[in-house]
Design a protein around this nucleic acid. Structure first.
Length: 816
RNA sequence: GCCGCGGUGGUGGAAUUGGUAGACACAGGAGACUUAAAAUCUCCCGGCUGAAAAGUCAUGCGGGUUCGAUUCCCGCCUGCGGCACCA
């Protein structure tokens, strides 16, 4: 058929031209815009249609911003270290490097077919030694600042992946990757002191233009609680005098002779009827000899140790515990003696690992007290059942009685502080970042263990410490990485004293490389530093960052932490890396499940591009619904956007050099479309931008001719979404330079005003009639016209209107 | 339990400083063109009543505020996500 739209004839052609002519590499302009996708893990399965959704969106934004005159940075790269590739290596004996290269080639081809504007000169790959050299350098900077440290605390261990994990790598009590229930395993590991940044990570959230849900997730994850550490003195059985002066330096940790508890409810201190320590708490060991039922207590503790975290913390589980006979704690506010229990409902790794129990005002303490028949003493009154856990007014609390909870917390804490028996503190749920993995396919940690000098950093000029080839990629299972088996690599000399030394054999987690990659794109070829200062200042922060919501508490916390560290050492100029964050919703399979080989419901973008063209596929993914929402795929929808493009492809027959600009309704529509499409792209409402373009095309179709300037406006508005066809039609108009080097249309305010408006007439709020009237009609005109309507007269039925509400330009409501 | 975000036709969805609910699209139906099919074009397309004109109900449920509520307020139901024996 004549003039038929055949995507394959034009898409490859323009993709090649854009690349060859550097159409999207205009970096010298005055204003900058950095638009970034979360870079993918190049898996062996290739892309399914869900992956490009976010990339299409950033491409639309990048193209519009370029047309608006910005220098646009829009890069792409590969987060290529990690377990899937390593597991594939174990299975097939293929070097992960090889697999990674192959996978990247597939991904690049697939992305290329969709016509993205990525600047491939800036491509990065976290497994490239030229890249991970800087990841190692940053790790050493952290080490130098004391932010990376060796720890021997028991950590989370996945018995299937055979590696240590960070708390962020869990889903409930299972390994996020393989679903195996994790264990606690004592072993040496490297840890980053992310908790030092807890407060800044929390505060920084307020300044960010991020989805509320992500900010909320991060707030929950950081888990800040304001409270106090309170010291309960534990007299030895025969020496009964608490010596307060000894205890003035009350650090929030346990010392022999006392138990320090953490509470957010200092105001309930008078209601404390017992104290509980976690089974892991050192107190039991320290005061072993004073505990009369030592055997019973130790049995309880060892039973607890056998339970998994999940068993221990399951909600609704009956509380258990054992009283420490012969031990009494002294409540520092009133000198009262209360019993001490060990119970597993108190967690060893939060707060101080010990709590003051106030059964009247805490549900857990209440449940425990009921079971073991402990006294319940109400000291805060308010409306509600026991346990009453809200704030209220204090009672039976000596001279604090009558105060409200908030005042009381302040005053009691101040009193305790003055007496050296307590201290206001802030606690976090955030844990330090367990940073070592016992696996092969990761960045080697650039440290050396010297017999004489201890831990010594590899000198900067010797970076990167290359990941050596190994015979077997299998984890050793001994808690050491496969690197430990390569003697010639492990054995080295100490950079400091030259003596015998061994290399650190742990590798970094997958999240290391992704914590700073957005900085490397800015200056990807720089050999002197990971990013040049001037360029960093020019491009940072990232203006829009697009990616999945699943990264809320991992990548996005790690990267913010990492960035703040880089700020502290003067390596970057901004305190937050990502100014605006947008979550991309998943594309589910048509059966509503996630697309997965396992379900056989995967739709391949190659097929869509082949059947309908890249532009139709791009339009559909933008049109299918709100960008951040999960929506099921429906190939029929691509048929729809393809039909739309068919209509577009014949519009140019109406474009006529001799035609004058249209006026009236069609001109108003065109200019309103400019406003709507521009606003919608800026705010990621692509679905309504596309529907607005469809409305415009439906109208343009009915016009006998289109003027060149007006038709060009339409092409420009279409171009971010369907760049190939827009470019082709643009060229057809005789333009010799890319449409993307022209300029984004601006609406003329004069043309946005309609000559006539449609007025709705309602009676008692129900629409009964409508009429057209000149836009500058007065309120009285509207009223008169409305009352003159026959239909309205019928509804008024002779009754006189009680009131007439007129909204100029919109409606007349008659109340009877 | 706490916190965040949602609930609109057969389907995806649109509309909020309160002002015609269902834009746009998909699916479906009827028709035109065609030897036929595809493609394309035209019309219909929330429920109920009605031949139609029209009326009436309807945005998870129940109340309220208002001339007017998908939009604001109160109380529920429900889906998704985060945190969770965190003191």
């Amino acid at each position: 058929m004549e003039g038929r739209y055949i995507p394959e004839n034009i898409e490859g052609k323009w993709q090649k031209k854009w690349e060859e002519q550097g159409t999207f590499r205009h970096y010298g302009r005055e204003r900058k815009f950095y638009v970034l996708d979360m870079f993918p893990y190049p898996s062996g399965a290739g892309l399914h249609v869900g992956h490009p959704k976010g990339y299409i969106a950033t491409d639309v934004v990048a193209r519009m911003k370029q047309l608006q005159g910005y220098s646009v940075l829009h890069p792409m790269g590969w987060d290529a270290f990690g377990l899937p590739t390593e597991q594939y290596a174990i299975k097939t004996k293929t070097h992960p490097k090889v697999t990674t290269e192959e996978n990247i080639a597939t991904f690049k081809r697939q992305l290329g077919s969709l016509g993205f504007t990525y600047d491939w000169d800036r491509e990065i790959n976290t497994t490239d030694p030229e890249y991970y050299k800087w990841t190692q350098w940053m790790f050493l900077e952290m080490w130098k600042k004391g932010l990376a440290f060796e720890s021997y605390e028991p950590i989370l261990w996945c018995p299937s992946c055979q590696t240590g994990l960070a708390k962020e790598d869990l889903e409930g009590d299972a390994c996020e990757r393989c679903g195996t229930i994790v264990e606690k395993k004592p072993m040496r590991q490297w840890v980053l002191r992310i908790t030092d940044y807890a407060d800044r990570l929390l505060e920084g959230l307020d300044s960010l233009d991020w989805p509320e849900s992500v900010k909320e997730s991060q707030r929950n994850w950081i888990g800040r609680s304001e409270g106090a550490v309170i010291r309960f003195y534990i007299p030895h059985p025969k020496s009964q005098s608490p010596n307060k002066s000894q205890n003035t330096d009350s650090k929030p940790q346990t010392e022999e002779g006392c138990i320090e508890v953490f509470t957010t409810r200092v105001d309930t201190l008078y209601g404390c009827t017992y104290v509980v320590v976690a089974p892991e708490h050192p107190f039991v060991q320290q005061r072993r000899s004073d505990i009369k039922n030592q055997k019973e207590v130790e049995t309880y503790i060892s039973e607890t140790a056998r339970k998994t975290e999940m068993e221990r913390t399951a909600e609704g589980r009956e509380k258990t515990g054992v009283r420490l006979d012969g031990i009494m704690a002294i409540n520092p506010i009133n000198g009262e003696e209360v019993p001490v229990f060990v119970a597993d409902y108190v967690l060893g790794d939060y707060g101080t690992g010990a709590v003051m129990a106030v059964p009247a005002h805490d549900v857990r303490d209440f449940a425990f007290a009921k079971k073991y028949n402990l006294p319940v003493r109400t000291v805060v009154s308010g409306l509600g059942d026991v346990p009453f856990t809200d704030d209220g007014v204090l009672a039976d609390s000596a001279d604090f009685s009558g105060l409200d909870s908030e005042q009381a917390r302040e005053k009691i804490a101040t009193r305790l502080e003055a007496d050296g028996l307590g201290k206001k503190v802030v606690k976090y749920k955030l844990r330090d970042w367990v940073f070592s993995r016992q696996r092969y396919w990761g960045e080697p940690i650039p440290l050396v263990h010297c017999e004489k000098c201890g831990v010594v950093p590899v000198p900067e000029n010797e970076l990167p410490v290359l990941l050596p080839d190994v015979a077997s990629y299998e984890p050793t299972g001994t808690g050491e990485s496969p690197l430990a088996g390569i003697d010639e690599w492990v054995n080295t000399s100490c950079p400091s004293c030259g003596g015998k030394a061994k290399r650190e054999t742990n590798t970094m987690p997958q999240w290391a490389g992704s914590s700073w990659y957005y900085l490397r794109y800015i200056d990807s070829k720089n050999k002197e530093s990971f990013v040049g200062k001037e360029l960093e200042k020019k491009w940072m922060p990232v203006d829009v960052y697009v990616g999945g919501a699943e990264h809320a508490t991992r990548h996005l916390i790690y990267a913010r932490f990492w960035h703040k560290f880089l700020l502290d050492i003067g390596a970057v100029s901004t305190d937050e890396p990502f100014k605006k964050l947008i979550n991309v919703g998943l594309i589910l399979a048509s059966d509503g499940r996630k697309m997965s080989k396992r379900w056989g419901n995967v739709v391949n973008p190659d097929d869509m591009v082949g059947d309908f063209g890249a532009d139709a596929m791009r339009l559909y993914e933008m049109f299918m619904g709100p960008f951040n929402q999960n929506i099921s795929w429906n190939t029929d929808g691509v048929v729809g956007t393809r039909r739309f493009l068919e209509k577009v492809s014949v519009l140019d027959r109406k474009a006529d050099t001799g035609a004058k600009d249209a006026e009236g309704k069609i001109r108003t529509l065109l200019h309103k479309t400019i406003v709507k499409v521009t606003d919608d792209i800026d705010s990621f409402r692509f679905n309504t931008a596309v529907s607005t373009l469809m409305i415009l095309v439906n109208a343009l179709e009915k016009e006998p001719v289109l003027s060149l300037p007006q038709y060009s406006i339409f092409l420009k508005l279409l171009s971010p979404f369907a760049p190939h066809i827009a470019e082709e039609l643009w060229e057809g108009l005789g333009n010799t330079e890319s449409i993307f080097l022209s300029s984004w249309p601006e609406a003329d305010p004069d043309f946005l005003v309609e000559d006539t408006v449609k007025i709705v007439v309602s009676v008692n709020g129900k629409v009964r009639d409508t009429f057209e009237i000149s836009s500058d009609a007065t309120e009285d005109d509207l009223k008169a016209k409305a009352l003159g309507s026959e239909k309205i007269a019928k509804f008024l039925d002779g009754m006189a209107p009680k009131r007439i509400v007129v909204v100029p330009g919109k409606l007349v409501n008659i109340v009877v």
